[in-house]
Simulated scan of single mutants.
Amino acid sequence: MSLLRSLWRSMETINTTTLQNASTTDDCNMHCRMILITLYSVVLLGGTTGTIIMSRMMVKRHSQSIIATIVFNIIVLHCILLASLPFRLSYYVSVSWKFGPFTCRVVSSVIYGHMYLTFVFYTAIIIVRLLIYFKKLQMQQLQKYHAVVLSIVIWMVGSLIFLPVFFLQYGTDPSYSKQRCFEFHRDLERDEFITMNYCMIVVMITTVVTLFLLQMAVIIQLTMALWPDMWAHQEFRAQIKSCFFLLVIVVCFIPHHAFRVHFIQRWKDNSKLVLYNEVCIALTTVCCLDMLCFISGVTH
């Protein structure tokens, strides 16, 4: 709390001339910035604590399962995102970007890359467990190299998709101010970016709905078969853990994509939507707190 009070005092003493020179459409007011600073501070503190403790636990346990390997990939993604958060906090506290336009594009793209790659790895865990349940996959058949190959493929495909988009096109409009950052919404005037956004929205929501229906069917089936001692069975607990990943996706990722549909259509008519969009993007980083939940589960 003392840290948040200090940040609040720093924000109140910001040079008002800087605020007046900012674009009215793009300006993030005090209330919006306080929400963003609070969110990113909590994620930075909790996420860093969770990833460090979880990493140490995994090293001690020497687990070589496919699930453990996927979780390790998620930890790496979280570390990359957490390393970018101090840049975001610095910007929202000072209301001025001091690290150059290229760094701005990199930091801005990291949050999207993290969101989509984390979503893919979450989905991979859920699908692997469903395949095992439906006897389409035997746990004994899965070797560590299967998980390594899967991880390499996901990273390569993700890089081939996101790197050309974010580093060659995203945020390259010369009209963007060098003193402002994370405000590349004018790219949505380009048809290719609109199409890409709609495709990602459809893919994510369709995937979540499909997996949710399958997961609920499996859990109901297991509950009926194992009642009343279902919690004593590892298979039931594994499927419940898969629900946790779906819950993280729904809470952290779906609000951004649901709001994105409205934002793409209306951002020109309502400048406040830019602020709401930034808050929705910040919400996606809360998934970094998942490691704290894993730690409590492992301890229990």
Rank of each mutant, 00 (worst) to 15 (best):
L45Y: 11
R105H: 01
M57W: 05
V76C: 15
L77N: 12
I75G: 00
F87K: 00
G46E: 12
S90W: 03
V93R: 08
I80C: 10
M115V: 07
V95R: 15
S84Q: 09
H62N: 12
L44P: 05
I67C: 02
Y112K: 07
G47M: 11
V93K: 12
S96F: 12
V43K: 07
G50E: 06
M57R: 13
R88C: 02
Y92F: 14
L39N: 15
S55V: 11
M57Y: 00
L89N: 08
V95D: 03
S96D: 08
I66F: 14
L77W: 04
G47W: 01
G47V: 10
I70P: 01
I52L: 14
Q64L: 15
Y91W: 04
Y91N: 12
Y40Q: 06
F102N: 11
F87P: 00
T103R: 13
T38N: 12
L85F: 03
V110Y: 01
Y116C: 03
M58H: 09
S55W: 09
W97K: 05
I75H: 02
N73F: 02
G47D: 03
G50T: 04
L39Y: 11
V76N: 12
I70A: 08
H78V: 14
G100Q: 09
T69S: 14
N73V: 06
S108Q: 11
M58W: 09
I111Q: 04
T38A: 14
C79Q: 09
L45S: 13
L44G: 07
L77E: 11
C79T: 15
Y116P: 00
L89S: 08
I52K: 10
I53V: 15
M58F: 08
P86N: 01
L82T: 01
M115T: 14
K98M: 05
C79N: 10
I67G: 03
V107T: 12
C79V: 10
V93N: 08
S55M: 10
P86Q: 06
H78S: 15
A68G: 04
S90I: 03
V107H: 01
R105C: 02
M58Y: 09
V106F: 09
